[in-house]
């Protein structure tokens, strides 16, 4: 019985924490270090990144196995080596013009093309490339 209560309360704490993170509208949500990434999140990120209506990363970037990619931006390869700091990769996707005002990259977060949650998922996916 006590075990059950503990389990339920832990679950409640976790879900409410997740809910809070998802709801906070801050542009730079701090990444919670996670040992291994849920493959479901990576898959969701891939769907957003490669789909035409959402991230549409392929419009400008080559991605391995991605069909008809553009070449305006650099190919998305060796991302962990290029962005050892995941937060920097997230910041680049959120608003590339913050670092380089003349960047042609869409400010996906700043101009609300993607939600914070969607960007988190895309970051997880891109980081696997």
């Amino acid at each position: 019985m006590i075990k059950m209560v503990r389990l339920v309360s832990t679950l409640v704490v976790i879900t409410s924490a997740a809910w809070l993170t998802a709801c906070s509208n801050k542009p730079m949500t701090k990444e919670v270090p996670v040992a291994k990434v849920d493959p479901a999140i990576v898959a969701a990120g891939k769907a957003i990144a490669t789909g035409r209506s959402k991230g549409n990363c392929l419009a400008c970037h080559m991605i391995e196995e991605g069909e008809s990619p553009g070449n305006i931006g650099p190919p998305l390869i060796a991302m962990k080596a290029r962005f050892p700091d995941k937060a920097k990769l997230r910041a680049q996707i959120w608003d590339a013009t913050a670092v380089n005002p003349e960047s042609a990259m869409v400010p996906f977060g700043r101009l609300q093309v993607l939600s914070d949650d969607e960007i988190d998922k895309v970051v997880e996916y891109i980081w696997t490339l």
Partner: peptide
């Protein structure tokens, strides 16, 4: 626009490059 492009972004800065195909 939401995608934040000017005419120049595509037709000067990135002329000759590809959007998709």
């Amino acid at each position: 626009g939401q995608l934040n492009f000017s005419c120049a972004s595509c037709h000067v800065q990135n002329t000759g490059l590809k959007v998709r195909t």
